[in-house]
Design a binder for these strands. Structure first.
Lengths: 174, 174
DNA sequence: CCTCGACATGTCAATACTGACATGTTGATA
DNA sequence: TATCAACATGTCAGTATTGACATGTCGAGG
């Protein structure tokens, strides 16, 4: 059950409504770390409010409710983050595809690898451009923080370099 | 539903029993790409056999059954791997922790980051040592392939470098 | 003033997955 | 020959998650 921790983390940085939280999950958080749609977020917020981990601090237009972390929630978040890593849950379809590449004939594998190299390279360039152009875009309300942005950038670059390495390797064998 | 594709990919490289497949998921495949225990693998193999994607090619001691991919299964695997990436399912608890780091006070975040740097560095060193010492260990039956091994190594190094960067950044701010 | 898109929250059935429990086999070692 | 670890497969109840459906609000532009 990592979803409640994800919500605690987001609300600890800044109070938000369920709708706003849903938007954050559609960005990089959902792309790299943990997916969730509004159909799991809303019920989870209600559960967490019942448990006293979060509370509604204000109600806005269109029935929106803004949640904030309680002291209890903050303590729970800290416990979770400082506790030993153990072996967390992992499920990543893109990475799975890469692991399965060796089941393809080299010609097919090369097609896939070239596509990976191209798309990751383009995304990395885009991220670097954004960071240079609007350094503050990453610290604001939308911000999962600069740490996370840097993490994403490095991930893309690592995958791109790996793909390039793999392509060269396959071509040399052929 | 990525589990069937993962199973197809493994069986395409080499026929195996459910028990052997379970072992593979306990290694790097489960660590980076897709987790699964025997309680989901066995039923899934039966479903896939019913659909004609795999078939039992031999029965061994202790009731073990060896599965192999059928032509239909191989076609399905190829379609999946060559189809546009779309946005696959992502769920990674460790990465989620990194995204939530900015919710901690800097002192706490530093503790976590130092632990990440240390463990990823140790694991990367270990992987590099294995690769140097037994280059063939990665191609054999256990092998998710050298491509995947290289991917894992680069992931660890990227995370370690990111952690080092983040530590330096936090320390400079303090 | 009408319409449409974004805002905002929800239920519910179907599916996927985990953890606990269950059962029996084979080979090695004491 | 008794025991134990690894081999080998399975069920099932409970939980988590997805996708389809439902409902209503507010602001901007035609």
């Amino acid at each position: 059950m990592s979803l409640p921790h994800a919500l605690l983390g987001l609300l600890a940085v800044q109070p938000r409504s369920g709708y706003e939280l849903t938007k954050v999950f559609e960005q990089d958080l959902g792309r790299y770390a943990w997916q969730a749609g509004h159909t799991s977020i809303y019920p989870e917020l209600n559960r967490m409010a019942e448990k006293g981990l979060v509370e509604v601090t204000s109600e806005g237009a269109r029935g929106s409710r803004t949640y904030a972390v309680t002291d209890e929630g903050r303590a729970e978040l800290r416990t979770w983050l400082l506790s030993p890593p153990s072996q967390g849950k992992v499920r990543n379809e893109q990475v799975l595809r890469m692991f399965m590449l060796s089941a393809l004939e080299p010609a097919d594998a090369l097609v896939v690898l070239r596509r990976i190299e191209e798309t990751t390279d383009r995304t990395a360039a885009e991220l670097r451009r954004v960071r240079e152009a609007e350094p503050d875009a990453l610290t604001g309300p939308e911000g999962f923080g600069q740490l996370a942005a840097e993490y994403g950038l490095r991930q893309y670059e690592a995958v791109r370099d790996w793909a390039a390495w793999a392509i060269e390797r396959l071509e040399r064998e052929a």
